[in-house]
Computed example of a mutant assay.
Amino acid sequence: MHPKIKAAGVISLLACLVMLLGACSGPSNQGKANPEPTAGISSAPAAPITIQHLKGEFKLEKVPERIVVLDVQYADELLALGKKPIGSVVAGTDNAVPEYLGDQMDNVTLIGTYEEPNVEAVVSLNPDLIIGTEFHDKIYEDLQKIAPTLMLERNEDWKTVMLKLGKIIDQPEKAQQLIDEYNQKVSDLKAALADKMKGQTVALIRPRDKMIRIQNTAHRTSQILYDDLGLTPPPMAVNSSETSSMISIEVLPELGADHIFLLQDDTNKELTAEFQSTSLWKNLSAVKDNQVYAENTAQWIGYYGPIAINLIIDQIADALN
């Protein structure tokens, strides 16, 4: 054989072997260089995250690892998504985390109240994302100097917030799954209550300031009762613009609710007992029919995240089923 022909054959064979080896090993090498994201472990998104918030467009270049929340509801939402914040404000005046979250808030640094978060404590945590609300407008510039700060409307629909947070921490499918599961749960309970609650009204009230606050249909918790579950509000509670209205105990009989969810806590325990001792209260049809259900104010009003809201649905089911 001619030497040139022989050399050409060897080169051709080598080239084939190189191509064959590359085809076999390529995916494995590629997997090592660019591993698939592991569940629960953050990775940089394919492109910067852009989300609308109270200050316009909010952009992040990568998934944040160290998140501080200035409202407890965002701790609830993040935990539901499998992400624990490194810092959170406390719940109410007890300087504590919400009881219903249990040990899920272990090792989370407490940084004051949502009305007065401790900015120095936030600095010490070295966050790469801060989540606040319009209540923090006065310190927004200070927060921005610490880390990118997402400003959300405090009463924004929790599902909308879930989708935003899911996008931010690279868990959009999980966020949608939580919403879908809630919708199914609500749909099932709505169907179960439809016949039983037909023609009956349900009110949500809270004794306060020597009066009684009615949570109107515009209130976000009332919307769970009336919009999500399709329950009927008493006419006095129908208001699309004001979230609540105040009435005296003397006016309470005019509410005419067949069922009453009574919000109470340490701040209104004495007032509630005072009202319950009156003949006006005792003669309410809901009281006579044993259809008044005492619930925790903070859980129903303040902790507006999917973990708390699913507990509220369970409590409504226990009361009305």
Rank of each mutant, 00 (worst) to 15 (best):
I249Y: 12
G31E: 15
E120Q: 14
P117G: 05
D258Q: 02
N310M: 12
L21S: 10
P233H: 06
L163H: 07
K62N: 14
S88M: 13
V292E: 00
D188E: 14
I312Y: 00
G26W: 04
I260S: 09
I131M: 10
Q176A: 12
T278H: 13
N29T: 03
L13Q: 06
V18C: 15
I168Y: 12
V292Q: 01
E156D: 15
G112I: 00
D318C: 02
G305H: 03
L125N: 12
L150I: 08
A192L: 07
I301D: 12
Y74K: 00
D258G: 05
L255H: 03
K62D: 12
L271T: 04
Y100A: 06
N118F: 10
E99C: 00
I131F: 08
M236D: 10
A317Q: 13
M236Y: 01
K145M: 13
S285A: 12
Y100D: 00
A175C: 10
T50H: 13
E181T: 02
I309K: 12
L14G: 14
E250A: 02
I301Y: 07
Y293Q: 00
N216P: 00
K4Y: 11
K167Q: 14
Y114W: 15
I67Q: 08
L20H: 03
N283D: 10
I111G: 10
D142V: 06
E173A: 10
S244G: 12
Y100C: 08
G102R: 03
D128H: 09
Y304H: 12
R213A: 13
D209H: 11
V10W: 14
K145P: 01
I5L: 15
V161R: 07
L78I: 03
L150C: 07
L101N: 03
R220Y: 14
Q299G: 04
S245G: 00
G132K: 08
E120C: 10
L178P: 12
F261Y: 08
I67C: 08
R154W: 04
G256F: 02
L178R: 04
A147T: 07
Q200Y: 11
E134Y: 10
S241G: 00
N283T: 00
D318G: 02
E295F: 08
V287E: 10
K269L: 14
L78V: 07
D258S: 07
S25P: 02
D94R: 12
V63S: 15
L229N: 06
A319Y: 05
D228Y: 00
Q177L: 09
M105P: 03
V10D: 04
V292I: 11
I205W: 03
K288E: 13
N29C: 08
N118W: 05
A175N: 05
P172C: 01
I224C: 06
P45R: 06
L129V: 05
I316V: 07
N155A: 11
V18L: 15
Q30K: 13
P37H: 07
A75I: 06
S28E: 10
L280C: 01
C24R: 08
A80W: 06
G40M: 01
V89W: 15
L78R: 09
I139D: 01
D137W: 13
N118M: 09
D209W: 08
K84D: 04
H136Q: 15
N310Y: 14
D142K: 15
F261T: 05
P27Q: 11
